[in-house]
């Protein structure tokens, strides 16, 4: 029904993504040794978010896909944020 377009990512890109992800993993472990008190969870989630972004963009080919796929991913993330916010409506005011 729709014309298929195939994008082949070069090995070099995959290698760079792998190195970046491993580096962030090392950073994740390293920051656990530093006492950041209230910021600890925030930093861990920030690093995890950056890693997820890289995985989605390159490994899952979002960079090369049509706008529709990006819209879907945006909707999913938007729903996720709303779920967190509504849950916080309980925790913040309990």
């Amino acid at each position: 029904m729709h014309p298929e377009t195939v994008h082949i990512t070069p090995y070099r890109s995959h290698a760079w993504v792998l190195i970046t992800l491993l580096t962030f993993t090392v950073i994740t472990v390293t920051v656990t040794w530093i006492d950041l008190s209230a910021l600890t969870v925030f930093i861990a989630l920030l690093i995890a978010s950056v890693k997820s972004f890289i995985v989605l963009t390159y490994f899952m080919h979002l960079k090369y896909e049509s706008t529709l796929f990006r819209v879907f991913v945006f909707i999913v993330l938007f729903i996720y944020v709303l779920v967190i916010l509504f849950t916080l409506a309980d925790y913040a005011y309990r």
């Binding site: 729903i79 709303l82 779920v83 509504f86 409506a89 309980d90 925790y91 913040a92 005011y93 309990r94």
Partner: peptide, 25 residues
């Protein structure tokens, strides 16, 4: 499907969650 995603806590009115959450849900 979309609004129904955000009504879950109406199962929890007597659970001890916050009043704010209760009226929002």
């Amino acid at each position: 499907a979309s609004v129904g995603y955000f009504v879950w806590a109406h199962h929890m009115y007597t659970s001890g969650m916050s009043t704010t959450a209760r009226w929002v849900f």
